Amino acid sequence: MKKNEVEIVLYGAKNLCPSCLNSPSSKETFEWLEAAIARKFPDRRFIMTYVDIYQPPEEITKQAFAKRVIEEDMFYPVVVIKEKIVGEGNPRLKTIFSELEKLWIKAE
């Protein structure tokens, strides 16, 4: 990752969260969130990563967190920035934007 670049990881699944009826899918939330962040922070660098909790990549930290989402019955999608959960179920932009602003201000 490059300097001042933040990774935003969205953990989700193809199937909707059983407790999240009438919510968008994890993939739809991922696309919506990526577009919203790019609009709000056009001059900032970030990477969006989607992790399927049932088929996580080989990266140990992502596998471990995907397992945690399942074992703890978290509402997904779960949005994580710098190992901090900033959204669960139906994530709120205000919370995510606030966390990103804190990180980018610290990095300057």
Rank of each mutant, 00 (worst) to 15 (best):
residue 34 E to F: 07
residue 23 S to D: 01
residue 53 I to S: 03
residue 70 I to F: 04
residue 58 E to V: 00
residue 77 P to Y: 11
residue 26 S to P: 03
residue 24 P to R: 05
residue 36 A to L: 12
residue 80 V to F: 05
residue 23 S to Q: 04
residue 52 D to R: 08
residue 36 A to M: 06
residue 46 F to R: 03
residue 102 K to Q: 13
residue 84 K to C: 11
residue 105 I to Y: 06
residue 13 A to R: 15
residue 66 A to K: 02
residue 97 F to W: 06
residue 33 L to W: 02
residue 35 A to R: 08
residue 21 L to N: 00
residue 53 I to Q: 08
residue 71 E to K: 06
residue 91 P to A: 06
residue 45 R to A: 14
residue 50 Y to G: 12
residue 13 A to C: 11
residue 29 T to P: 00
residue 103 L to A: 04
residue 37 I to S: 02
residue 105 I to H: 05
residue 31 E to W: 12
residue 15 N to E: 14
residue 18 P to Y: 09
residue 48 M to T: 07
residue 17 C to E: 05
residue 64 A to P: 01
residue 60 I to E: 15
residue 31 E to L: 15
residue 93 L to I: 15
residue 56 P to T: 08
residue 48 M to P: 01
residue 82 K to F: 04
residue 90 N to A: 12
residue 28 E to T: 04
residue 47 I to V: 10
residue 92 R to K: 06
residue 75 F to I: 06
residue 103 L to W: 01
residue 23 S to V: 02
residue 35 A to Y: 01
residue 22 N to S: 14
residue 60 I to R: 10
residue 64 A to V: 15
residue 11 Y to N: 07
residue 79 V to N: 07
residue 71 E to V: 11
residue 93 L to W: 11
residue 106 K to G: 06
residue 71 E to I: 09
residue 82 K to A: 11
residue 83 E to K: 04
residue 11 Y to K: 10
residue 23 S to A: 09
residue 107 A to Q: 11
residue 55 Q to T: 13
residue 87 G to L: 14
residue 105 I to T: 15
residue 107 A to V: 04
residue 62 K to D: 08
residue 77 P to W: 09
residue 25 S to H: 05
residue 12 G to Q: 03
residue 97 F to A: 08
residue 58 E to R: 05
residue 78 V to M: 10
residue 20 C to K: 07
residue 58 E to P: 01
residue 87 G to Y: 09
residue 99 E to R: 08
residue 25 S to M: 10
residue 59 E to V: 01
residue 47 I to R: 14
residue 77 P to N: 14
residue 35 A to Q: 03
residue 22 N to K: 13
residue 9 V to D: 05
residue 99 E to C: 12
residue 39 R to C: 10
residue 94 K to F: 00
residue 13 A to V: 06
residue 106 K to C: 11
residue 74 M to F: 15
residue 93 L to G: 15
residue 19 S to C: 03
residue 30 F to D: 13
residue 23 S to P: 00
residue 73 D to A: 14
